[in-house]
């Protein structure tokens, strides 16, 4: 049982990490807790669902298209909702409030368009049978989610660390004003990050929608507190931290079900997060940086 539970923890943790990657990117660079991330995540899932059911596309063609669509939505949110607030002396939580408005608008519009009920991808979109390795059972999709989330994390880390573009993004994350003086196209970086983060979020929506057969307008909502927990635990805007944070939450949840009580699962998971923050007040990989409330 322990082997199977470790696999369960790994796959659940990868799901959380996948959701959190784009979330943490926006948080790190734009310094906004983007509460519309769950709505973009949902939009990605619906986009792929439409492409598969209405346009009869293969899921692996639909996935990148859905990511493009949700990336565009993210860009739209940034340009319409967040850009007007940049450079104005607004309360630093105002952008977050604006994203709540965007989330409310998008999810409820989606409910108006698609209805309130749960949909799933048609049978046979992907192979659903699980196979046995030793004492554990796993599906191809579960393996894919683990691999994809690790690959995306590595890819993002390499881009951020090794490329000119990545250096620009990091510079903007550190200090937008100085970056501007250094000749970096700060607005361009913001647009790029918004697009990429939303595309990642949308991709996560597709994979999670595929994996759990639960596509509905509010599908992003239960993931929001968990996503916030993961990115803050990992440390502000740290891609590696989001991965570790996601895995940690997955392990904490699965193990508290396995060895304690499923009744207290969320209390155990969030209680542990609480304790970790007391020991490491800036998260696992956080820069030691005082930011005011």
């Amino acid at each position: 049982m322990i082997a199977q539970q470790l696999i369960n923890a790994l796959t659940l943790g990868s799901v959380y990490a996948l959701f959190a990657l784009g979330f943490t990117l926006v948080f790190g660079v734009l310094e906004v807790i983007n509460l519309a991330h769950g709505a973009v995540f949902m939009a990605g899932a619906y986009a792929a669902l439409l492409l598969v059911t209405k346009a009869n596309l293969n899921i692996w063609v639909a996935l990148p298209l859905a990511m493009l669509a949700s990336g565009a939505l993210g860009l739209l949110i940034d340009q319409i909702v967040l850009k007007p607030l940049r450079g104005r002396r607004a309360h630093h939580l105002m952008p977050m409030i604006a994203t709540i408005g965007a989330a409310t608008l998008i999810t409820n519009a989606a409910q108006g368009i698609f209805g309130a009920e749960t949909s799933r991808f048609p049978l046979g979109t992907i192979p659903e049978e699980s196979f046995q390795i030793g004492t554990i059972r796993i599906t191809e999709l579960q393996i894919a989610i683990v691999i994809i989330s690790f690959l995306l994390m590595l890819l993002l880390m390499v881009i951020l660390k090794k490329t000119r573009l990545g250096k620009a993004v990091r510079a903007v994350a550190e200090n937008p004003q100085t970056s501007y003086l250094l000749g970096i196209n700060v607005e361009g970086v913001f647009r790029l990050v918004s697009f990429t983060a939303a595309a990642l979020g949308g991709g996560a929506g597709v994979l999670i929608g595929l994996s759990f057969n639960a596509i509905f307008p509010f599908m992003g909502q239960p993931l929001m507190p968990k996503g916030i927990a993961v990115i803050i635990l990992g440390g502000m805007g740290d891609v590696r931290g989001a991965m570790v944070g996601g895995l940690f939450l997955g392990v904490a949840e699965v193990m508290s079900v396995a060895y304690l009580s499923s009744d207290y699962r969320d209390a155990v998971a969030f209680g542990l997060l609480f304790l970790i923050l007391l020991v490491r007040p800036s998260g696992l990989f956080g820069r030691v940086l005082e930011r005011k409330a």
Partner: peptide, 28 residues
């Protein structure tokens, strides 16, 4: 007493965690 040494979003996270624990306790 232990929590308020945290600041900014980290404090928000810790209090969010506390809130979840309270909710689960009410549930059980």
């Amino acid at each position: 007493i232990p929590t308020l040494r945290l600041s900014g979003v980290y404090l928000a996270m810790a209090t969010l965690g506390f809130g979840e624990v309270v909710r689960v306790v009410f549930l059980n």
